[in-house]
Write a protein that binds this DNA or RNA. Sequence first.
RNA 1: GCGCCCGUGGUCUAAUGGAUAAGGCACGAGUCUUCUAAACUCGAAGAUGGGGGUUCGAUUCCCUCCGGGCGCACCA
Length: 563
Amino acid sequence: MNPTTTKEQPALPQDALRAFAAALSSTIGLLYPDAPVAEVSFEAPRRPEFGDFSTNAAFSLARIAKRSPQDVASALIDALDTTQPNLRALFSEIVATAGFINIRVAPACWRALLAQILRDGASFGQSAPNGARVSLEFGSANPTGPLVVVQGRTLSIGETLADALRYCGYDVFTEWIINDAGGQLETLGDSLYARYRQLFEPAYVFPENGYPGDYLLPIAEQISKQDGASWCARPQSEWQPFFAVFARDVLVAEQHATVERFGVRYDLWQSEKALHDDGRVKAGLQRLVDGGVTYERDGALYFRATQFGDDKDRVLVRADGRPTYLAADVAYHYEKLKRSDRVIDLLGPDHHGYIGRLQGLAEALGYKGRLEVLIAQQITLMRGGEQIAMSKRAGHIITLDEIIDEVGVDAARFFFVMLSAESPLTFDLALAKAKTNDNPVYYVQYGHARIASVFKNASPEDAAAASAGATLELLTHSTELALIRRLAELPKTVANVVEHLAPHRLTRYARDVAADFHQFYTERKILVDDRDTRIARLALSLATRTVLAQVLGLIGVSAPEHM
RNA sequence: GCGCCCGUGGUCUAAUGGAUAAGGCACGAGUCUUCUAAACUCGAAGAUGGGGGUUCGAUUCCCUCCGGGCGCACCA
């Protein structure tokens, strides 16, 4: 773009950067014709005194130029000033420091961006659809009991990731797989049947490997209510499938309810049993057979996993004809890979050893590099410094519902996504529900509520004028400009979350936005007597509220009007 | 034994290969007759487990050792 046109229409920071990159590239070509053509990229320096953006272009040129990076950077800036004198209009500072070229975008550009936030509102920074389809699977659980704390973490991370992908223009399809095939469904049926029989014969023996815990009891009572004791006299071949499917349906419905209560929605709840029943498992296996990556031994069908880096080959179909879990995964991943450009599995901590096998599978199916696997690490549950012991076998479980009851959805969603997925998380229930200043959820929500409160005290006329963004040039204070710069980071931050599958970075950003607002709020009274100043500060507050609401929405936390 | 993840101040964490490693908590001192003090300001203290390597530059990538966690089924 031509910088001279900016008089009438102030350039946005990203336009200014683009102009700078283009100018710098051509200057590099002029000064160092032998240098390989490289794109000039920018990063945000860690320290604010180094400017808004910096580029390290001089480092790679230093060797060719046979001069120090600092000399190269200085020479580039001098040349820029000679050949592109108009560039200075867009920047308040262009300096060479320690080899970096640090630039500060003119305040007018930042105000132009603020005006854009006010115009775009809730859709600020969102990318247009990019046509790429993403399949995201997360949270999936066995249908043998209530959801527990680990699923809370994968649900939080997965849903935030899905929303971040959508924000960046991806066509996201979220799916949950119900592991309702094989022996565990039978065990579930046996367990429920025992609970049912115990209603009539308290001495009836509970199966040794059954699922303990009280949660099957109400389901047994439900059957007793509708059918009485009639199942007691029926043969196993009749009650077994009935109790298994009955239990599954009730438990999956409960899981569904918990998931929705947690603010998470799926596009598909896929039954694994259905994959077997409708022949898709067979189709997936055939794909592997056709690809020549299987063989038969002792009557069983094997996948040549070692060919893809696994320790040993894996059984797909047992000698008796029953397929293994891996067979279903073959089919399901084949289906997901067929219909998606990018497949992401977010798995629990017990699936470490499974990553390589899944990726080998994707490669064997002909989709090398399309599958990404992210593991959410373990959670240790605490209450005020005391570790809470949990044992599924002994029937001591703390359900996700109980956690939501105790700390609320907002705190749970925020805490579960706050740490990077690969580091183990200690979740302290006492801290999560503490309404004190060491609770980061409230810190961010308080920022939003504070702004809402200011607007309650402002006149409707002022609020309308603020959203039109008429007097933004009065925003000159350091806290005001710092806040605008922070708000501008939203799109880049979400893009970064998507690129690195790192949703925890959103919580940090949320805290940064809140912190910058709280500082601004303390330093500059918003509802001052001077009308233009008042409206300018209201406009900044409004934009902040928009961004805070967007970030909180991505994290799955409510943005309260008052606290 | 094999594989994966993690070792950062007193403590919990952060840091697309960048500059003087950043925040919260805890500790000390201040700031409300003014828009929500669930906030803000200042201070003290102080960390990348050890050793190699790649790089102009490593908390980040590679190797190795030490320490912690988890997983290693013809279960799902």
